[in-house]
Amino acid sequence: MKPKIWAKSPKGYVLMIMVAFLGIASYVSHESKGLENALIAVVAAVVADIVCCLFEKRKRIFPDGAVITGVIVSLILSVTSPWYIVASTSVLSILSKHLLAYRKKPVFNPAAIGLLLSVPIFHAQQSWWGAFGDFNALFLLIILVGGYWVAHRIQKFPLVFSYLGAYLIAMFVISVGIVPIGSETLHSGDIFDALRPPFINATLFFALFMLTDPPTSPAKTRDQIIFGMLAAIAGAVVYRLFGGLIYLYIGLLVGNLYQLLRGMIRPQHRAAIRVSE
């Protein structure tokens, strides 16, 4: 693919925005460690992706998706994370893309599953620094502008809106006790925290850039709405029960499982219709 055409592709758009976020977050925080981590994450992801593609004997090897995964991983992991945790999280993400696949398509969002696994395996701390979680709340506008641009380009607005709507409503319903799900520890699962930086930054970044990943999210409007609602409700319940920062990923994995089941059931359903005809 020619560079000009690639730059106008959904992956091109996402990568440009992620790199812009990386630059802005590094500049504002006066922190170069984030850039180092990004380089480590991208190199690790690209190498892992090429090795996996060679092993699978793929004809076309173009690790642009791995570059995006690496940048996203580096934007979410704390800038003080050691290099081996950054590299390992990237590799885990890429491995999940190749190993957990159905009909040659990844089942789970690679970055989400890598970051989720990095918590129990490496005790990785995730600061979402690339989502401007430590800065003024006005930086949320940058996420919204970049995210809307991507959502428009890849036609995922129904998914984004259903996710955010269900997320806000689920948080409210759970926090006022309409659904009696409690949290034992103070702050963990507080709706107060969920609506403020860095959590709201993480939620918007997640909804606009990770949830909408084309290979692992549905295309049809109806499926997008169900997918978004499932991910939001599951995430809100996990947040309320356990707090922490992994609730977004678990919600997404629930959505990904729904998408997988839809993909598995549809062909069988169609075959059954053909037989009955």
Binding site: Q155, F157, L159, F161, G165, L168, A219
Partner: peptide, 20 residues
């Protein structure tokens, strides 16, 4: 594909903003 009308995008964004 799930192409969304601009009016709906604005309306949904406003609704979400109000809930938030």
């Amino acid at each position: 594909m799930a192409k969304m009308n601009k009016k709906w995008v604005v309306l949904c964004s406003a609704a979400l903003g109000a809930i938030y």
